[in-house]
Simulated assay, not measured.
Amino acid sequence: MGNYQLIATAAMGLEALVAKEVRSLGYECEVENGKVIYTGDEKAIARSNLWLRTADRVKIKVGEFKARTFDELFEKTKALPWEKFLPEDAEFPVIGKSVKSTLFSVSDCQAIVKKAVVERLKTHYKRSTWFEENGAFFRIEVALLKDIATITIDTSGQGLHKRGYRVDQGEAPLKETLAAALVLLTNWKADRPFIDPFCGSGTIPIEAAMIGQNIAPGFNREFASEHWNWIPSKVWEEARNEAEDLANYDQPIDITGSDIDHRMVKIAQENAVEAGFGDLIRFKQMQVSDISTTSEYGVIIGNPPYGERLGDKKAVERMYKEMGQAFSKLDTWSIYIITSNEEFEQFYGKPATKKRKLFNGFIRTDLYQYWGKRPPRQNERN
């Protein structure tokens, strides 16, 4: 078993959550902008891909160095131990990005890194010509930031938000990783009721159900690194068995999703069935002003329309107002609303207990948090 420097990439604002998840898997880590860095073996690669709910991808850092000229980029890339990762028939496209760096042409940087890796492997595998890339898939990335080149290999394949349960979606679906983050940022526990009044295609309720029953989010999908010859299939098998053992399928959950659009409710139901929660999550068509419950100490998470299109603005403001009135009766509930509308509190009719800046894709939003009364402690002593 080798040790690798791993990078779990994260959307802006979610780094601390990803770090918490990495630590709960048992790995010490450091947090930087957009990424969490830690060391782990082949098993760590498998477990990170299976378990990280809020990370975008898991990458292996092959090297990091200063590169101001194409020559420097070529020589330093060629000096890296590529044969340790890439078999003779590897398929390895190179992607890239460059920020505030002398080498600003991404396509040139990609071509140079590709050429350097080929040269290194030709020497190692004693080939005079290159060969068909018809084996396992290794996506290499060269990322330049202020003249420092970081070269990584992506272990995930498709982004980790692709859980494998989405049959269909609406116009602007919430990414699964952000939906999971919203649930993890609340005080919700599986024994409390949970409502999403703007459920769309069901992403937040499904992610909550997975968290409630401790189901590994990557359990039902494949990863690029499952096909790599230097990670024994036994490693993946053991990681999946661990995930199976830790899942608590018997945990009862009380999760409801509602939406004003009956088509979205139908899509949400289909996605929940695909995720294995067909009987466990209730979905219904309903407008937010009609939400009422006799349950106590629950959590509401909502991703309502933001009113960014001019024609929608007034309707959205009215809906925020109705939402505030409907929720004002739920004084034991904690309510979390994510929106880019900066006047949200004004229309809702109440200042938030706390606000947290998050990005929904490229839209800067705030998570408005309204904390309800705490449930009385069992056997509380006076």
Rank of each mutant, 00 (worst) to 15 (best):
M1V: 09
G13S: 11
G13N: 12
L14E: 00
L14Y: 05
E15V: 11
A16K: 15
V18Q: 04
A19H: 08
L25P: 13
Y27G: 04
E28S: 15
C29F: 08
N33R: 15
G34Y: 03
K43G: 09
A44S: 10
I45G: 01
S48H: 06
L50D: 07
D56P: 03
I60D: 10
K61C: 13
K66P: 03
K66I: 09
K66G: 07
R68V: 15
R68T: 15
R68D: 09
T69R: 11
F70K: 13
L73F: 08
L73P: 02
K78G: 01
K78Q: 14
E83K: 10
L86C: 09
P87E: 02
E88I: 14
D89F: 05
A90K: 00
E91V: 09
E91W: 05
P93D: 00
K97E: 14
S98N: 04
V99C: 00
L103R: 04
F104Q: 12
V113R: 00
K115L: 11
K115E: 06
A116Y: 05
T123A: 15
Y125R: 03
K126T: 06
R127W: 13
F131A: 10
E132N: 14
E133W: 02
E133A: 14
F137D: 15
D147L: 01
I153V: 15
D154M: 00
S156R: 02
Q158V: 10
G159N: 09
V167L: 11
G170D: 02
G170Y: 11
A172L: 00
T177K: 01
L178T: 01
A181I: 03
L185M: 15
L185C: 06
T186E: 03
W188P: 02
A190I: 04
I195P: 05
D196P: 08
P197Y: 00
G202C: 03
Q213I: 12
A216M: 08
P217V: 01
P217M: 01
N220Q: 13
F223N: 07
N229T: 13
I231D: 11
P232C: 10
S233C: 04
K234D: 13
E237Y: 12
D245C: 05
D254S: 15
I255G: 09
T256F: 07
I260Y: 10
I260D: 04
D261I: 08
D261P: 07
H262M: 08
K266F: 11
A268D: 06
E270P: 03
N271T: 05
E274A: 15
G276Q: 01
F277S: 10
D279S: 15
V288E: 04
S292T: 14
Y297G: 07
I300C: 08
N303K: 05
P305S: 02
R309L: 10
A315E: 14
A315N: 14
V316Q: 02
R318S: 11
Y320H: 05
K321D: 10
E322W: 06
L330C: 08
L330G: 07
S334R: 04
Y336H: 15
T339R: 02
E343F: 12
F344G: 12
E345W: 12
E345H: 13
T353M: 08
T353A: 13
K354C: 07
R356H: 11
L358Y: 09
F359A: 01
N360M: 07
G361A: 06
I363E: 09
Y370Q: 05
P375T: 08
P375W: 01
P376G: 06
N382Y: 11
